[in-house]
Design a protein around this nucleic acid. Structure first.
Length: 928
RNA sequence: GCCCUGGUGGUGGAAUUGGUAGACACGCGGGACUUAAAAUCCCGUGGCCAGCAACGGCCGUGCGGGUUCAAGUCCCGCCUGGGGCACCA
């Protein structure tokens, strides 16, 4: 009876589907356990072996928790809005909904073959109107909300209007764009448009100007990584920085809570650190510098007000609103040229290119608030318009970028904190005594900061301030394939679409491109107006609807909640269900989402808590980042200027360039199937090859991607070895969190293990399990395994649990153990990892029904007690021999016995030891 | 550039968190079974040195320092791979 994995796996996958084995229970008395995977974007390339890594890990945990008596929620869905489907639609004219549907089908087939315990009855798709109806609904809740800092929560906009009516802006402590001041009478006097403009300053979803990478040729906005050296990556068209009215989300209102919440969740320290850095809370002061010959002031934010006497120039971002006003005529030309040059650089380029220092003097001066000295005002692109006030007071003595700038342009460098040599380099440390600083002289930095702020406040030229690096999140996208924003405009004033008209469905368009005059694709739709009584109406009726769509992260910011009650048509989820499932106990996904998705999701949950819909501020109690599976790319070496390829070992003898080769054309010994390669692409039909014996390729580890031809499809592995082998192998590859290259070389070891396991039950070829009582060794092998498994699952150390299985099965195999008392436990133990073989063996043992709720075994210490310990005996830390001693021997006795040993005397060589260290149960070290 | 993270045999990795470095597996070498192959099983396998053999010596966890009886593990300084840096998902 051979191990026929394909038959076994088909049988049990069908069984689970029929029995709905993995549907989470409704109204259960069991304790809940919610395991979630970051849902995939269904790309046209299909699932590759990197995707299931996290899913297998979460599947193991979900099955394990089911064995332990929990009501487990382990759902799956699709993050199905996104750019690739839209690009494909632009190229082929096919509607993204069609290709997305196809891709999802393919993903589902691939996922089903791996034997996951997903509750498919709760599947969600962000692009499905029944889902995005609620994404839009949440957007409207944000539109209708403002944030009260005094009570630290979001409140309804009605309440704010009432407040303005009664008090004007007086005493309001709200999250806002700018500080506004008006009286109740003034509020009453404003027309509707002005009122709305004021409300926009407070709404949590609001419109404002933000700077974007605009590509006029493509008529669209690009991400930073789509821009290379001022040109679009697709097509190489020029890209400029442009200000644009955009929908944004006031995530900054929640900065402090997002920061504080990190202390209560079980995420890796490094990930929390990333979020802390992203939020970037810094304490300092805002200071106004009075301009010479102008009314205006320049406001700067600094974390080092103590160094104010070291200011020798000011730097504004080239886009700063004051630049045009203050530039003197003789500098105007240079400033304009510089501004144009800066507009061509993306923000990323500006942050990265620290080596090329550039800037231009505006001709303007400010007056130093304390010394009265005239300080020149420059513009430079190392100052970003979007951060702080877009202006810095440059202290070259104590800030390295300012120092480099001063050196380059020959500006004065003043030392105001002692401890370094400012001629050699800036002294950035916050340690030392203040010098050359008038009333601050002699103070330590910390005290000087406090004193400087005091002086600044006394003089009324600024105040202590907390600044965040976190910016409000731009929410509008110039794209088709995203959630429509449920807003229409009356006289340019945004109005909310009525809830009864949700979902506001994506309209049909003739092309998925922007319009000729650069409007987003939705502007092409003929049915894209709105009437408050009728809903969506054709052009010519009603009012225009918003034409930008929501970003990729909108749907993923709350999808975890929808799984709790995925088919609800009355609410995004029922309150009772939200209360039962609470939040995600274990979330597994890639670290590339460390700041984006994870921060936005936390923000939306906090908002929904404020509005009373949820009671859990933190969506994900525990989070694990699975490492990326990298591809093992293959390259053939082509001699430059020819169509002749040379085998890798001879490549050095020629001038060659490397050409990606599909990894399926290469075997594990790096040998290329030359004929298959020739047929792979037309341009290779007549290629020549130079090699001896076999043609070799060279290998490199890269990200797994279709364009690099290094994608490995799990279907092929399952075909050859089965899903259980794939599952075990992905875990065996290494620690979950670590990135690692995919290499199938080791897979036969894991497959062999499953065959060995199978043979334990089929010794001599047929079913052969006896009722004999196990001996001590067999019990010990089993309970060592049980103990290790429970520990490993608790630590998410699945690679070592696979090893533990191998060790146990090897041992039981050596012992020829065919005893039921042992063999009936193994299937339960392995069921989370290799569920198909587990069910099959369980079934053959004579059990009825699924194994998946059998209680998980717990180890018993009595089988594990060791009577002796093998002590390594070392001299000066070098192990020389080992000595087996009774486990309960006391420290003194161990020392005595070791010292009496012949070998010890041999190594002592007549000398007396200086010290003998005995760690009971561990080691003996003799110091000479 | 800034932030996060990794670097251990030919390969993937293990190491009770400061206590015998290389578990488990792949690969490789040798052997058994077989007419042969597949399958299966057994032995060996970090490097160098010494040796008929049993036994043994030295080196070794990216590099350079340090702490400690003891360092892959802790500290300082480098080199280097990967991820992120706000419109890729």
């Amino acid at each position: 009876m051979d191990y026929n994995f394909s038959e076994i796996e088909k049988k049990w996958q069908a069984f689970w589907a029929n029995q709905k084995s993995f549907a989470a229970e409704e109204n259960s008395n069991k304790p809940k356990y919610y395991v979630l995977d970051m849902f995939p974007y269904p790309s046209g390339a299909g699932l590759h072996v990197g995707h299931p890594l996290g899913y297998i890990a979460s599947d193991i945990v979900s099955r394990y928790q089911r064995h332990r008596g929990f009501n487990v929620l382990h759902p799956m869905g699709y993050d199905s809005f996104g750019l690739p489907a839209e690009q494909y639609a632009i190229q082929t004219g096919q509607h993204p909904a069609v290709t997305t549907e196809q891709n999802i089908k393919r993903y589902r087939q691939q996922l089903d073959r791996i034997g996951f315990a997903f509750d498919w009855s709760r599947e969600v798709r962000t692009s499905d109107p029944s889902f995005y109806r609620w994404t839009q609904w949440i957007f409207l809740q944000m539109f209708d909300a403002w944030y009260d800092y005094d009570e630290e929560q979001a409140k309804s906009i009605e309440e704010l209007i009432w407040y303005f009516h009664k008090n004007g802006s007086d005493g309001l402590n709200a999250a806002c764009g700018e500080d506004l001041h008006f009286t109740p009478e003034e509020w009453e006097g404003y027309d509707e448009a002005t009122r709305e403009q004021i409300l926009q300053n407070y709404r949590l979803a609001y419109r404002s100007e933000s700077t974007v990478n605009w590509c006029p040729a493509l008529g669209t906005v690009l991400a930073n990584d789509e821009v290379k050296d001022g040109l679009s990556e697709r097509g190489g068209h020029p890209v400029v920085q442009k200000k644009m009215m955009q929908w944004s989300m006031r995530i900054t209102a929640y900065a402090d809570r997002l920061l504080a919440g990190l202390d209560h969740i079980d995420w890796s320290e490094s990930l929390k650190e990333s979020q802390r850095n992203w939020i970037g809370k810094s304490q300092g002061a805002s200071v106004f510098f009075e301009l010479k010959d102008h009314e205006a002031n320049i406001e700067v934010f600094t974390t080092r007000p103590d160094t104010i006497f070291g200011v020798s120039f000011m730097v504004l971002a080239p886009e700063h609103y004051l630049v045009d006003e203050i530039t003197t005529p003789d500098q105007a030309e240079a400033v304009k040229a510089y501004q144009e040059q800066a507009a061509r650089k993306s923000e990323r380029d500006r942050m990265t290119e620290v080596k090329s220092i550039s800037g231009v003097f505006t001709g303007a001066y400010v007056k130093h608030p304390f010394s009265g000295e005239e300080v020149p005002v420059w513009i430079a692109d190392y100052v970003l318009a979007g951060y702080g006030t877009g202006a810095v007071m440059a202290v070259p003595g104590h800030d390295s970028r300012d120092w480099a700038f001063a050196k380059h342009f020959g500006l004065p460098i003043k030392e105001v904190v002692s401890g370094g040599n400012v001629e050699e380099a800036s002294y950035d440390a916050k340690e030392g005594k203040l010098v050359n600083s008038d009333f601050l002289n002699g103070l330590e930095v910390k005290a000087a900061i406090a004193k400087a702020i005091e002086a600044i406040e006394d003089k009324e030229i600024g105040k202590a301030q907390i600044n965040f690096r976190l910016r409000d999140a731009v929410f509008g996208r110039q794209r088709y394939w995203g959630e429509p924003i449920p807003i229409y405009y009356v006289d340019n004033m945004p109005r909310r679409v009525k809830e009864e008209h949700l979902p506001l469905e994506l309209p049909a368009v003739d092309k998925f491109l922007p319009t000729e005059d650069g409007e987003p694709p939705l502007a092409r739709a003929s049915m894209w107006n709105y009437h408050p009584d009728k809903g969506v109406v054709p052009a010519g009726e009603g009012y225009p609807l918003e034409t930008t769509t929501m970003p990729g992260w909108a749907g993923s910011s709350w999808y975890d909640l929808r799984y709790m009650d995925a088919r609800n048509t009355e609410a995004f989820a029922d309150k009772e269900k939200l209360d039962y499932w609470q939040n995600v106990d274990l979330y597994i996904g890639g670290s590339e989402h460390a700041t984006g998705h994870l921060l936005y999701t936390r923000f939306w949950h906090k908002f929904l808590v404020d509005k009373g819909y949820l009671n859990q501020e933190e969506p994900f109690k525990k989070l694990i980042n699975q490492g990326m599976i990298l591809g093992y790319s293959a390259f053939a070496h082509r001699i430059d200027g020819t169509n002749t390829f040379v085998s890798a070992e001879q490549a050095k003898e020629h001038k060659t360039s490397k050409v990606h080769v599909d990894v399926s054309l290469v075997n594990t010994s790096d040998e290329l199937d030359v004929n298959a390669f020739k047929n792979w692409r037309d341009d290779l039909k007549n290629a020549e090859f130079i090699f001896e014996g076999s043609f070799k390729v060279s290998r490199e580890v890269e990200k797994m991607s279709k364009s690099k031809f290094n994608v490995v499809n799990p279907d092929d592995i399952i075909e050859q070895y089965g899903a259980d082998t794939l599952r075990l192998y992905e875990m065996f590859l290494g620690p979950l969190e670590q990135s690692k290259p995919w290499n199938t070389a080791g897979i036969s070891g894991v497959h062999n293990f499953l065959k060995k396991l199978w043979r334990l039950y089929h010794q001599g070829g047929n079913w052969n399990v006896t009722d004999d009582a196990p001996n001590e060794k067999e019990w010990k092998a089993l309970h060592t395994l049980i103990k290790k498994l429970n520990e490993d699952i608790a630590n998410f150390s699945f690679n070592t649990s696979v090893s533990a299985f191998m060790i146990a099965v090897n041992e039981l195999g050596d012992l020829k153990c065919g005893k039921k008392a042992i063999l009936e436990q193994l299937p339960i133990l392995i069921s989370p990892y290799a569920p198909h073989i587990a069910e099959e063996l369980w079934d053959r043992l004579g059990n009825v029904g699924s194994i998946n709720e059998e209680p998980y075994p717990q180890h018993e210490e009595k089988y594990l007690v060791e009577s002796s310990v093998n002590y390594p005996v070392s001299f000066n830390g070098k192990v020389r021999f080992t000595l087996s001693l009774p486990a309960d021997m006391s420290k003194d006795e161990v020392e005595k016995t070791v010292m009496a040993e012949d070998k010890t005397q041999q190594y002592l060589d007549g000398k007396a030891p200086r010290k003998v260290i005995v760690v009971p149960g561990r080691i003996v070290n003799i110091v000479l």
